[in-house]
Each structure stands twice: as C-alpha cells, then as structure tokens.
C-alpha cells in the first residue's frame, strides 16, 4: 500500500512538471511577454517584476526567450521522435514479422549504428548536411530509427507466434493487416515507454547540439543555445543559465517519472 502511494506521488509530480513545461512551450509558440529577440538597454539585470527571469547580455527578456526556446526544443523533439517512431515501427514490424536475410542485414546495420554514441552520429550528420533547425530534426530523426526498430522488432518476433495471430491467419487476414491491425495495438505499452525515453533523449540531444553551436542557430532561441550564451556571463548573470537549464531538468525529470510509472 505504501509503495503504491509512493508511486502515485511520483506520477503526480511527474505530470505536474510536464504540464508546467508544456504550458510554457505551448504558450511560447503563440505568445511571449516580450518579443524574444527584442533588445534593450537593461542588460544582465536580475529577476524583477517586469522581467521575472531577468534579462540577458543583450537586454532580452529571459522568460520570453525560455518560452520561445522551449517551444523550439519541444517542437524539434516531437518531430524527431515521430520520425523515429513511424519509420522505426515500419522497419521493426517488417523485419520482426518476416525475418530472413533482410532482417539479418538490417539488424547488423542497426548494431553498427547503435554502437555509435547518438551525439556522435548527430555530429556526423550535421557536418555532412549542415547546421540549423531543420537539419537537426532530420539528423536526430534518422538517429532515433534504430532504437525504435529494435524494440518493435523484438515485440513482433514474440507476438507473431501467438494464437491470435494464427487465428487471424486462418480467417484469411493478409500479412499487412495482421502486422498493423492485429499486432501493432499490442506493442502499445512498450512503445509508450520508449516514446517517453526517446523524447527525453531528443531534448538532451538537441540541447547538447545547440550548446555546441551546431544545432539551432541564433537569433532563433533554443534551450541549448541559451545555455552556451549564458556561460560567458555566469558570474554577472547566473539566472541567465539557470532558467534554460532548469527548464531542461524539469522536462526530463517529469517525463522520466511518468515513464517509470508506465512500466
């Protein structure tokens, strides 16, 4: 009973955190208190009533930039994970269901790709196709395919031997129908959990890349880009680094608490 209780608290805390950051990011898509790129003479000012998170080195409102940056980072992560999820599911479904030589080959390729640390792979992509918002989406999206493919594939290998699949076959269902109408819904629990983990990884990867100035390019704000900027003014304006950093921490913590409870 006590354990159950504890779990519920951590789930609630996770949902609260995620809701807060989602509201920030969602509102940031349409409205921010100030124009995120508008400069003023109030440089590196600590948090005040007019600027709740203070201002940065160019006198820009940090709250507005965090909202804008969070929505950029979230948007990139959502699209990235969607690319990984859809492509990974299709690849995983076909290879897991049919097996054979193509499965063997693709899984070798998969092993090779996953043996690269993901940030390294993203760096390779970016050095080939260039930096910027859309290239980061493409790079990270492709990088997330193998991990989803692997999870889905192993699930399909188990499911395809089960009775309900045989029954469906006997009733004359085609392979595609079995794969995507019958089996796919049963992979939902495992997909949900890898989805939250994938989303966190995407947030961290985007932030890392933009921190290295190889992701989102200024004047676009992203959480990582803000952090890299803030480091120069750490002593005079620590709030500049704390706001985007804590935003990342809350997001990742919230999603990981939720994913923990999904298991």
């Amino acid at each position: 009973m006590k354990k159950q209780n504890q779990k519920n608290w951590s789930l609630i805390f996770g949902i609260v955190l995620v809701s807060i950051v989602c509201v920030f990011a969602f509102v940031g898509l349409f409205w921010t208190p100030y124009e995120p790129t508008a400069m003023s003479i109030l440089k590196n000012k600590p948090p005040s009533f007019a600027h709740p998170f203070g201002t940065d080195n160019l006198g820009r409102d940090i709250l507005s930039r965090v909202m804008d940056g969070a929505s950029t980072t979230f948007l990139i992560s959502v699209i990235t994970v969607t690319i990984g999820l859809v492509a990974g599911t299709v690849v995983g479904a076909f290879t897991g269901y049919y097996g054979g030589i193509i499965d063997e080959l693709l899984m070798r390729l998969n092993d090779t790709l996953t043996s690269f640390p993901s940030i390294l792979l993203a760096l390779v992509f970016v050095s080939v196709i260039g930096t910027g918002k859309y290239n980061i989406i493409l790079a990270l999206g492709v990088i997330f395919i193998p991990s989803f493919a692997r999870v889905v594939r192993s699930e399909y290998i188990v499911q395809k031997e089960l009775d309900y699949v045989r029954n469906a076959k006997l009733l004359g269902a085609g392979d595609l129908r079995i794969m995507f109408v019958h089996i796919l819904p049963n992979t939902k629990p495992i997909l949900l959990s890898s989805l939250t983990i994938g989303f966190n990884n995407a947030i961290l990867a985007e932030a890392g890349m933009s921190y290295l100035s190889l992701g989102v390019q200024p004047p676009d704000a992203s959480l990582g880009e803000m952090l890299s900027n803030a480091q120069t003014y750490l002593l005079n304006a620590p709030w500049f680094a704390l706001a985007p950093g804590l935003m990342i921490v809350f997001t990742v913590l919230g999603f990981s608490l939720i994913s923990e409870n999904l298991k």
């Binding site: 951590s10 961290l204 932030a207 890392g208 921190y211 952090l227 803030a230 480091q231 750490l234 680094a241 950093g245 990342i248 921490v249 809350f250 990742v252 913590l253 990981s256 608490l257």
Partner: peptide, 14 residues
C-alpha cells in the same frame, strides 16, 4: 532520480 535528469553540460556549468 533528480540527478539523472540533469544534462552533464548543465551540471558542468553549475
């Protein structure tokens, strides 16, 4: 649980 959510580079900045 909390520390796992802190990206290493933010920790580095702190």
């Amino acid at each position: 649980q909390t520390l796992m959510a802190v990206p290493a580079f933010f920790l580095g900045i702190i």
